[in-house]
Amino acid sequence: MIRRAPSTWLRGVQPVSASDIPHVREGAEIPRELQDEEVREIVEGFGEATRRAIQAGFYGVEIYGENTYLIKQFFSPHSNRRNDYWGGTLEKRMNFPLVVVQSVKSDIEKHADKPFILVYRISPEEIEEPGITLDDTLSLLMKLKNQGLDYIHVSLGNVAQTSPRDKESNTPTINIINKKIGDEIPIIGVGSVTTPDDALHAMEDLNLPLVAIGRGLIVEPDWIQKVKTGKEDTIRTEIHLEDRKDLSLPDAMWEYVQSRPGWLPIVK
């Protein structure tokens, strides 16, 4: 759930959030604050979704605690202005993400008869004021590392970027996180990893054990195979209009890509 989703996307239903604070984007609607009972139902829903994933044969789930989605909305002092169990202090703003993790973990223990991967994905900072600081995130990560997760997935626009809040910092944010908890739980880095050299930089120079590729795999679905077979120089790094058929992008995906200039490197 994104609080910035307009009601027109939701068939006329008002968007919901931790509090009735609109997104900073111009024209954003005011969301409805979720009631305690609704929050607890949503927590149970995360567990139910995990059960379905297990029964469907998936190998694991990633809890999406980033990019202004609902979990991050509860953790953020900008979108969460509550004064109950779910907000009011940093410790209380951690309750929703931590309870979601426990809900998911509980259903894994109940329903998985073989190892099932559990990952938490997080965006370290917000530029809004008040907003999530890196210190806030480090406090949450110190708790998350003890929750039985397999990995922490750190979501950044660029895997090597520095803090958008601390302009004087020259240290990549992911290095700060890795130094804090990397000896206790593996870190996945992501962000602008397009070529094999980008991935090597993340693993060797940033000392990351794992690197994720997202948009790069949309542009080049055979990315992994081409690296394995020594065909790195044939990896597609931008989409030409004539590539659409080869990529088999569904109409809805193509429309979305075209509506988000710069989201993918499209050459017309």
Results as ranks from 00 to 15, higher is better:
153 H>Q: 09
175 N>E: 09
169 S>V: 08
143 K>W: 09
177 I>M: 01
193 V>I: 15
187 I>A: 05
190 V>F: 01
155 S>G: 09
182 G>E: 05
142 M>E: 15
172 P>Q: 08
194 T>L: 14
190 V>Q: 03
192 S>Y: 13
193 V>T: 05
144 L>G: 00
160 A>K: 11
174 I>L: 02
179 K>M: 05
181 I>Q: 01
153 H>I: 08
182 G>T: 02
194 T>F: 12
193 V>E: 01
195 T>I: 11
158 N>W: 14
166 D>M: 10
180 K>M: 11
168 E>M: 13
145 K>V: 15
179 K>W: 08
144 L>S: 00
162 T>G: 12
186 P>A: 06
167 K>T: 14
169 S>L: 10
158 N>A: 14
178 N>G: 05
192 S>K: 13
178 N>A: 11
135 D>T: 12
158 N>M: 08
187 I>Y: 03
155 S>D: 07
144 L>T: 00
163 S>L: 06
162 T>D: 02
149 L>R: 05
160 A>H: 12
188 I>F: 08
169 S>P: 06
135 D>M: 13
157 G>N: 12
181 I>D: 02
189 G>M: 08
148 G>R: 01
176 I>M: 11
144 L>W: 00
193 V>S: 00
163 S>G: 10
151 Y>T: 03
182 G>V: 04
137 T>N: 08
161 Q>H: 03
150 D>W: 04
150 D>N: 15
193 V>A: 00
135 D>Y: 12
162 T>Q: 11
134 L>Y: 14
188 I>M: 04
151 Y>N: 07
169 S>Q: 06
180 K>T: 14
188 I>P: 03
189 G>P: 09
192 S>M: 14
